[in-house]
Amino acid sequence: MSKRVSDLKEEIRTFTEGKGKPVAKFNDEEWTCDFAFMVDITTHLNELNTHLQGNNQLINSMFDHDNTFKMKLCLWESQLENKIFVHLPTLLRCNG
């Protein structure tokens, strides 16, 4: 749902402003970038959740998915410090 709101942010802004009830957060660049980051992280967490579900999963496979995700988090943290947003596409659009 948050991804959809992010994708339709401009349309939502236009609609609410047209109704005379603008959403101030959509005009706040810092909030918009924080929201974009949350969208990207939530997307990655949903992918991890999908990998961990299902019948006949072996614990070692689930363990591998978990460890891989932890390594990705370290990579993304390092990339964020260097303003590299390649794995965070919604945030990348925000920082264009």
Rank of each mutant, 00 (worst) to 15 (best):
L58D: 10
G20A: 09
T68W: 07
Q53P: 05
L48A: 03
E10R: 08
E47I: 14
E17A: 11
N56E: 13
L58V: 05
I84P: 01
N82Q: 09
E10S: 12
L45D: 02
N49Y: 06
G20E: 13
L73T: 10
H65D: 15
E17Q: 12
S61W: 03
K21I: 12
I84A: 05
N67Q: 12
A36W: 06
G20L: 10
D66A: 14
G54S: 01
N60D: 10
R13P: 01
L52P: 01
E11G: 07
G18I: 11
H65Q: 12
K25F: 04
E77H: 10
D7F: 00
N27H: 15
K9S: 14
V23Q: 02
I12M: 07
S61K: 06
F69T: 15
L58T: 06
E30D: 13
H44Y: 10
L75V: 14
S61H: 08
D7I: 00
D40E: 06
W31G: 06
L52I: 02
N67W: 07
T43L: 07
F69D: 02
R13Y: 01
N60Q: 10
V5W: 08
T68E: 14
C33V: 05
T14P: 00
R13E: 11
C74Q: 10
T16W: 07
E47K: 12
G20H: 13
S61F: 07
F35Q: 09
N82R: 09
K3L: 04
F85M: 02
T14G: 04
T43Y: 08
L52N: 07
L75A: 05
E81F: 06
Q57W: 02
Q79E: 14
K83Q: 13
Q53L: 04
L52Y: 01
I41V: 15
N56R: 08
Q57F: 02
I59K: 04
T50N: 02
M71N: 13
W31K: 07
G54E: 01
L75C: 06
D66M: 15
V86N: 06
M71W: 02
K9M: 05
F35N: 07
K83S: 12
D28R: 03
N60M: 09
P22M: 13
K83G: 00
K21H: 15
S78F: 05
E77M: 04
D64M: 07
S78I: 00
D66T: 15
S78E: 11
L80H: 04
Q57P: 03
F85G: 00
V86A: 02
H65C: 10
C33Y: 03
W31L: 05
I41G: 01
T50V: 04
S78G: 15
E11M: 12
Q53Y: 01
G18S: 13
V5L: 11
L48I: 09
T42F: 12
V39D: 04
T14H: 09
E10M: 08
G54R: 00
N46G: 14
G20Y: 10
D40T: 07
N27E: 11
T14I: 13
F26C: 05
N46Y: 10
N49L: 04
R13C: 01
D64I: 06
S2F: 06
